[in-house]
């Protein structure tokens, strides 16, 4: 085999593999990326039912309820970013670190007429830590400025305006 043919084989193999990898990556990206959304974004523009999104916020204190459908347990709780709240239902065991009034990320989709149905609930963090996404969402909604200390109690958010929130935090 000539040198040129051998080099051609090598180039074909490289281009084939890398092109295949790039095509696979792009097609997988287009269908499998999960957007992060806050409750107010979901309220404003609910995602289509076939789209998996990550909903992040704080669990409203006192909102966690356990229900039973046949032998299947269902947890319902509200997630808020201080402006609006979304009811999440999750079939399964909530993670060990799940707490009312603490941050949570729920992976799932909006079901028409059924609220947000989560397939996975992530609460990996301890009480002082807040996932970056949640912290950003809170800051964007104006409910919390990290300059003034820890975030206010999630239970009180829906009732508070921005001014009250910062006053409450500064008063601490």
């Amino acid at each position: 085999m000539k040198r040129k043919t051998r080099r051609l084989w090598l180039v074909i193999a490289c281009v084939g593999a890398l092109g295949g990898a790039a095509a696979l990556t792009l097609s997988a990206f287009s269908s499998n990326i999960q957007l992060f959304m806050t409750p107010s974004q979901i309220d404003a523009k609910p995602p289509p039912a076939d789209r998996t999104v990550r909903l992040g916020g704080m669990v409203v204190a006192g909102s966690v309820k356990q229900e039973r459908k046949g032998d299947t347990p269902i947890n319902r709780f509200e997630v808020t970013d201080g402006q609006s709240a979304v009811t999440v239902s999750f079939e399964g065991i909530l993670p060990d670190l799940f707490r009312e009034g603490q941050s949570v990320v729920a992976v799932g989709s909006m079901v028409p007429g059924g609220g947000f149905v989560a397939s996975e609930v992530l609460a990996k963090h301890d009480e002082t830590y807040m996932p970056k996404e949640v912290a950003e969402a809170l800051q964007k909604s104006g409910k919390w400025d990290p300059k003034f200390g820890p975030p206010p109690n999630a239970a009180s958010w829906n009732a508070m305006t921005q001014k009250e929130a910062s006053a409450a935090v500064q008063g601490k």
């Binding site: 696979l24 997988a28 992060f36």
Partner: peptide, 28 residues
């Protein structure tokens, strides 16, 4: 690396998980 880059450059928070990696790695 794509999610951190997206959030750094465009401020968009996204994440990719098992469905992406399964679809992209197994055929290779």
């Amino acid at each position: 690396m794509y999610p951190p880059f997206m959030s750094l450059l465009f401020g968009k928070t996204i994440s990719v998980g098992k469905p992406f990696f399964d679809a992209a790695t197994i055929p290779l």
